[in-house]
Simulated scan of single mutants.
Amino acid sequence: MRAVTVTPGTPNSLRCVPNWPEPAPEEGAILAEALAVGVCGTDHEIIAGHFGEPPPGTDTLVLGHEALGRVLEDPTGTLRKGDLVAGIVRHPDPVPCPNCAVGEWDMCRNGQYTEHGIKALPGFARDRWRVHPAFAVRLDPALTTVGMLLEPISVVAKAWDHIERIGKRAEWKPQSVLVTGAGPIGLLAALLGSQRGLAVHVLDLATTGPKPDLVRALGATYHAKPVAELDFEPDVVIECTGVPRVVLDAMCKAAPNGIVCLAGVSSGGRTIDFDAGALNRALVLENNVVFGSVNANRRHWDQAAEALARADQGWLNSLITRRLPVERYTEAYTAGEDDIKVIIDFTA
Rank of each mutant, 00 (worst) to 15 (best):
V237P: 12
D249V: 00
A190M: 07
V237W: 10
G167D: 07
A228I: 01
G209W: 09
A159T: 12
E233I: 00
G197T: 02
P152E: 05
A189Y: 12
A189W: 12
R245C: 07
G209M: 07
A190Y: 14
A159S: 10
V155Y: 09
H223N: 05
T180I: 04
D204S: 13
A157P: 08
Q175P: 10
L205T: 13
L149P: 08
L203S: 15
L214H: 08
A159M: 02
V179P: 08
P212T: 00
G181H: 06
L150E: 08
L187A: 11
L205H: 13
T144G: 07
L188S: 06
K211R: 15
F232N: 02
G183H: 05
K253P: 13
R169N: 09
P244T: 03
M148R: 00
V215I: 13
V246T: 15
L188A: 06
L191T: 03
G209C: 10
E229K: 03
T145V: 01
P184N: 00
E229F: 09
G186L: 01
D213R: 02
R165N: 15
P174L: 03
A228D: 13
V202D: 06
K173D: 15
L191F: 14
V177G: 13
D235C: 02
V146E: 13
E164C: 08
A217G: 08
E229I: 00
K158E: 13
I238G: 11
T180N: 11
T207K: 09
L143F: 11
E164T: 04
A220G: 10
C252S: 15
T221K: 06
G193S: 08
G183W: 05
E233A: 15
W172R: 00
M251C: 15
L191C: 08
L149M: 03
P244H: 06
M251R: 02
A217I: 00
L178R: 03
V243S: 13
D249T: 01
D161A: 14
V246N: 11
I153C: 12
L198N: 06
S194K: 08
L192K: 04
T241G: 11
V246G: 11
M148D: 14
A254H: 04
A250Q: 02
T145R: 09
P152V: 02
V177D: 09
E229P: 08
P184K: 00
G147V: 03
A199T: 05
V227M: 10
G209A: 07
D213Y: 10
T241W: 14
G242L: 06
A189H: 12
L187R: 08
V155I: 12
A228V: 05
K158T: 04
A220F: 15
K168S: 15
L178G: 10
L192F: 10
E233F: 14
V146H: 06
D213L: 05
M148V: 02
Y222G: 04
T180M: 03
S176P: 10
A254Y: 05
S194V: 02
V236D: 11
A190Q: 07
E239S: 11
D231H: 09
M148E: 15
L218R: 01
G183D: 03
E151T: 04
D231G: 04
W160T: 00
R196M: 07
P210T: 04
